[in-house]
C-alpha cells in the first residue's frame, strides 16, 4: 500500500514547480530539489521514506507550510470525526427502525414509500444533495449557515463543535448530506435482514410463548439482524471518515477531506501520503472493532473461533 501510494504520487507532476516562485532560475530550483531530497533516485527516496515512517514514525514535513504532515492531519481529524460519527449515528437511528417497518409490512403504502425514498437517497449524487440543502436552508430560509464550522470547544488537543447549538447549526447540513445516502443503504440492509429473519421458527416460538410484540421485535429480531447492519454501518463509517472529500468541499468543512483535496492540488506529497497511510490504519482498526462486535452479537462466532 505504501509503495503503491508513493509510486503513484511521484509519477504525477513536479512539486518543485509549485514551490519555487515563477521567477526562480534553474539554480534555485536545483537547490530546492536538493533540500527536499527530490534529486535522489526514486527507490532511494522510497527507502528513506520507509525508514522515517516505520522506524521514527515521521511522515515528513509539508512542502507548503513546513509543518509536520501528521500534525496537520491530526489537527483536522476531530472535525471529520464528528461529522462522520454524527452522520452515521443519524443514518443508523433513522434507518434501522424504518428498515424493520418496511420488512414487517412489505406490502403497505408506508413501506413502499420508504423503499422508493431509499432508491432516491443513494442514487442522488452527494454534492447535488449538499448544494440543494444549502440552497433551501441557507440561501432561501437562512436557517443555517452555508458552510464552515461553528464555534469549537477544546478538550485538550481535540476541538469539537458538537457541544453548542451554534456548532450544531453548522454541522446539521453536511451531516444531513451524508446521512441521506447512508440511511438509504441501512434501510435496505435492515429490510432484507428482517424479511429473512421473520419466518424463522424462533420468532414464531417467541410469539407462541406469549412474549409482547415489543420484545419479539426489539430483542429476538433485532439481535439477529444486527450482524449485517453492523457490517454495513462499519464499512460505511470508514468510507465517510476517510473520503468525506466531496461533502467537506461543498460545505468548506475544515476536515481531513478538505485538507486532502487541497494537498493533492498543491502536490503536497508528504501530506497526501501520510493521509492515506493513516486512513489505512484507521480502516484496519475499524474492521477489527467490527469483528469484535460480531462476537458480542452472535455467540456462535465466538465458539467457532475457539474451536
Amino acid at each position: 500500500m505504501s509503495a503503491l501510494v508513493f509510486a503513484a504520487l511521484y509519477m504525477i507532476g513536479d512539486p518543485v514547480l509549485m514551490l519555487a516562485s515563477p521567477e526562480a532560475g534553474d539554480a534555485e530550483r536545483e537547490l530546492i530539489r536538493q533540500s527536499f531530497g527530490l534529486d535522489l533516485p526514486l527507490w532511494r527516496q522510497y527507502l528513506i521514506f520507509l525508514n522515517k515512517v516505520f522506524v521514527h514514525l515521521d511522515f515528513g514535513k509539508s512542502f507548503l507550510t513546513g509543518e509536520p504532515a501528521i500534525g496537520l492531519i491530526l489537527d483536522r481529524m476531530p472535525a471529520t470525526l464528528e461529522l462522520a460519527t454524527a452522520a452515521m449515528l443519524f443514518a443508523v437511528l433513522i434507518g434501522v427502525p424504518l428498515g424493520i417497518y418496511a420488512g414487517l409490512k412489505p406490502e403497505s403504502f408506508g413501506a413502499r414509500s420508504v423503499m422508493t425514498g431509499s432508491v432516491l437517497g443513494f442514487s442522488l449524487p452527494n454534492f447535488w444533495v449538499g448544494l440543494m440543502l444549502i440552497m433551501v436552508f441557507a440561501v432561501f430560509l437562512h436557517w443555517m449557515p452555508a458552510g464552515g464550522r461553528g464555534p469549537v470547544q477544546a478538550f485538550g488537543p481535540i476541538q469539537l463543535s458538537i457541544f453548542s447549538w451554534a456548532g450544531w447549526r453548522s454541522l446539521i447540513l453536511p451531516v444531513a448530506t451524508i446521512a441521506v445516502a447512508k440511511c438509504a443503504l441501512i434501510v435496505r440492509v435492515t429490510r432484507a435482514a428482517t424479511r429473512e429473519c421473520l419466518p424463522q421458527d424462533y420468532i414464531k416460538f417467541a410469539r407462541a410463548r406469549g412474549l409482547s410484540e415489543a420484545r419479539v421485535l426489539g430483542v429476538h429480531l433485532l439481535k439477529n439482524i444486527l450482524i449485517p447492519i453492523v457490517t454495513v454501518a462499519g464499512l460505511e463509517y470508514g468510507q465517510v471518515f476517510a473520503f468525506a472529500v466531496v461533502t467537506e468541499s461543498v460545505f468548506s468543512w475544515p476536515g481531513m477531506g478538505k485538507l486532502l483535496i487541497d494537498s493533492i492540488i498543491t502536490l503536497d506529497r508528504p501530506v497526501v501520503v501520510a493521509y492515506l497511510i493513516l486512513t489505512v490504519v484507521f480502516l484496519s482498526l475499524l474492521n477489527l472493532v467490527v469483528d469484535v462486535i460480531y462476537t458480542i452479537l452472535d455467540p456462535r462466532v465466538q465458539s467457532k473461533a475457539r474451536a
Partner: peptide, 24 residues
C-alpha cells in the same frame, strides 16, 4: 390472545435446532 399463548396454551415445534433463538 398473546396473554393466553404460553400461559394457558403452549406449543412445541418440530425442529429443535430452529426453535430457540441462537443469540440469546
Amino acid at each position: 390472545y398473546r396473554a393466553l399463548r404460553g400461559r394457558d396454551m403452549a406449543m412445541i415445534f418440530q425442529d429443535p435446532m430452529m426453535t430457540l433463538n441462537p443469540t440469546l
